[in-house]
Nucleic acid binder design. Structure first.
Lengths: 113, 113
DNA sequence: TGACTATATGTCGGATGTGGCATAGTGTCA
DNA sequence: TGACACTATGCCACATCCGACATATAGTCA
């Protein structure tokens, strides 16, 4: 499952934007990663736009500044739950989330049925 | 943070559809739960529509039937990562996810900035 | 009736995400 | 220059989530 892929990605150091099948990732795995990166970008965006510091956001989340930094860095150790929680705490609506998701690096096809 | 709320919800037995502030949940907490329930419903929907059994889906996910059942039951022990992964494995696109998310029980307002 | 399939629910050891802390880097202002 | 705010990165103990398994229930077909 995905945790092994995670390790590999950490080791490989991420490369850049989107969909790496240069490792053995399935389409779904790659899509999930892209999704999280999209949320990650959206988070930094929203936070900065609102003039909130990482420390302040961490306080609202009852979390820590280092976690927030990792979230925005797209660190694989951050869950989607935490990312979405953060966006919600920053006042994002369902529609906002949907927009962020759809704004993901949509490199053509996604998963196979 | 949320894990304590989770416990409380499990104990209280969920009630029904949407947004319980009958416990001390913050808006963001409640919104996250609603979101996951929306994904949960969407998953069952998509799986059944495709005529895939829980066992079959579990196999594709390299997971187990019990996990899939819990996902669809909205069990609090299931992460958003797993829910989204499952949808992706069933061929959902970013747009599909966005639609599922926006289709959440949108009971008016969400979080405070 | 029994055999079979699909789903639900509970438990458990182990994998992984988490908060907290330390520390380093960067920019700004005086 | 120093003091301060903000952010990045590494580490670790602990909480949570995971897959696996056992078991129960419900439906179908013969």
């Amino acid at each position: 499952m995905k945790q092994s892929k995670r390790k590999a990605l950490e080791a490989a150091g991420w490369v850049v934007g989107s969909a790496q099948d240069f490792l053995g990732l399935s389409d779904a795995d790659a899509a999930l990663i892209d999704l999280k990166l999209a949320l990650s970008r959206s988070l930094r965006d929203r936070r900065q736009r609102r003039g909130v510091s990482q420390v302040e956001l961490a306080k609202r989340l009852r979390s820590s500044q280092s976690r927030v930094a990792k979230m925005e860095a797209g660190d694989p150790s951050v869950s989607m739950d935490l990312l979405v929680s953060s966006l919600l705490v920053l006042g994002a609506s369902g529609a906002d989330l949907a927009k962020a998701i759809r704004g993901e690096r949509s490199k053509g096809r996604h998963a196979a049925a």
